[in-house]
Design a protein around this nucleic acid. Structure first.
Lengths: 120, 120
DNA sequence: AGACTTTGTTTCAGTATCGTATCTATTTAC
DNA sequence: GTAAATAGATACGATACTGAAACAAAGTCT
């Protein structure tokens, strides 16, 4: 069954995760960049610039820039669609997978603060 | 009992919340700004520039900038400490409280996708 | 009083991102 | 084959953020 999460607990979780993430050497991604990255990894492909712009409700150049940035970081990569060479498919990378796996662990750790007391 | 949250579930939650947040007219806060905002609202005061810089492990000018930005948005406000006029206390605002309450509701809604009444 | 410490802001050059409009490349329609 | 439509990238001027260093203001110490 899905757990019940109160608004206060939810915000508290979000705070711990954000702080833990910021404290690391992780690049300071904006909400848009994070939303794009997670969408590429967690929703079924293909992912195009136009499609992501629609999902995130932002302009196409904004998506292009976010993909540029995440590409520089090695988190995603571009690939021209073979069947419609106008389109660009945004794909996952090994580095991005590792980053998100660690990030998931960060969330899990932040959601169970009672277990053990190691806070740094 | 504390709910068990798997890494995949955690990332999935994060994705839904980030996307929902980005889709709104909400300003595109960086992870640092969000971490600062949440820390001001969810951890006991007082909150100083120096203290926040330590908590977030960023430079003091970075905190000043984030407070500038969040102040422009009406999310936090500054107040000189009466007892040590060198210090600046970063305090909550009504607008920030409203924003975070709504954000908490967004997280709760994203964590209970089974009751899908509407998706916008 | 004077020197020193602490706090936060400002300056600086450099980089990143923004939205709108324009551009190139590709596909489709006629 | 030529025009229209589509997808994504780029140009543009504007704004925001970066860390390091210098700064002003306020407190502390002797």
């Amino acid at each position: 069954m899905s757990q019940k999460l109160s608004p206060v607990e939810a915000l508290d979780l979000w705070q711990r995760v954000c702080v833990a993430s910021v404290r690391q050497d992780v690049p300071d991604l904006s909400a848009r960049q994070m939303a794009l990255l997670l969408t590429v990894y967690l929703t079924p492909p293909p992912h195009t610039v136009r499609g992501l712009a629609g999902i995130l409700n932002v302009s196409k150049p904004a998506v292009t820039r976010a993909v540029d940035r995440l590409g520089e970081l090695g988190m995603v990569k571009r690939k021209v669609d073979e069947y419609d060479r106008r389109s660009v498919l945004i794909q996952r990378t090994v580095k991005g997978s590792v980053f998100l796996r660690e990030f998931g662990d960060t969330i899990v750790a932040a959601s169970a603060p009672s277990s053990d007391v190691n806070s740094d």
